[in-house]
């Protein structure tokens, strides 16, 4: 009587455990509304797309264009908070011609953004730099995921975001 019960439990255990394990291992974590500023080969500058963080790589997809960076090749990850004009693009350009210096007034309204910088070496040992703009608050999360997947970061996520020492800054 014990053998059939053991068998049922074994099969049930496999059914429950296997799909969960495969989902955890394969499903990449995606961040949308990511802007590729520069650095990825084969991807246009300032194009909006999705950033996927999976176990082996970081992948950026924007329409048909896509580029991957192997997680093991990443030497450093930096995050930085910044801001940009709330009304940008073509509408922002048109605002330049609006009367009574409306353009300047509109420039006061801004939205927060995060800048994510990756430093990596490819298979030939060549150094590359990639910069992304993410929605506010997303960069530290992405960095955490990447570090958890094996990417190297010289500054821990908790320490980043602190202002650099202004004494070291020199005017040109």
């Amino acid at each position: 009587m014990a053998k059939p019960l053991q068998g049922i439990l074994l099969v049930a255990g496999c059914l429950l455990a296997c799909p969960t394990a495969s989902v955890v291992a394969q499903e990449p974590v995606a961040t949308s509304n990511v802007v590729h500023v520069l650095g990825l080969e084969g991807v246009k500058k300032k194009i909006k797309g999705k950033l996927f963080v999976s176990s082996g790589e970081v992948r950026f997809e924007a329409g048909t264009a896509k580029a991957e960076v192997a997680m093991a090749s990443i030497q450093d990850i930096f995050t930085n908070a910044d801001n940009k004009r709330l009304i940008g693009g073509k509408l922002g350009m048109l605002a330049m011609f609006a009367p009574y210096e409306s353009d300047r007034f509109l420039s006061l309204f801004r939205k927060g953004i995060d800048v994510l910088t990756l430093k990596y070496r490819d298979a030939k040992g060549a150094l590359h730099g990639v910069i992304f703009i993410l929605p506010k608050g997303q960069a530290p999360l992405v960095k955490k995921q990447m570090v958890a997947q094996g990417a190297h970061a010289s500054i821990p996520v908790e320490e980043e975001g602190q202002k650099p020492d202004r004494k070291q800054e020199r005017k040109p």
């Binding site: 500023v37 520069l38 650095g39 450093d76 930096f78 930085n80 800048v115 910088t117 430093k119 070496r121 030939k124 040992g125 060549a126 150094l127 590359h128 730099g129 990639v130 910069i131």
Partner: peptide, 29 residues
């Protein structure tokens, strides 16, 4: 770091655009 990497990448990009060299190598390549 963003300025550092942007400067490095822009230097490679702009030097490539000059068309003066047959091959352009990156750091450590």
């Amino acid at each position: 770091p963003a300025f550092e990497m942007a400067l490095y990448e822009n230097l490679i990009d702009q030097v490539r655009k000059t068309g003066k060299f047959e091959r352009i190598y990156r750091d450590g390549e």
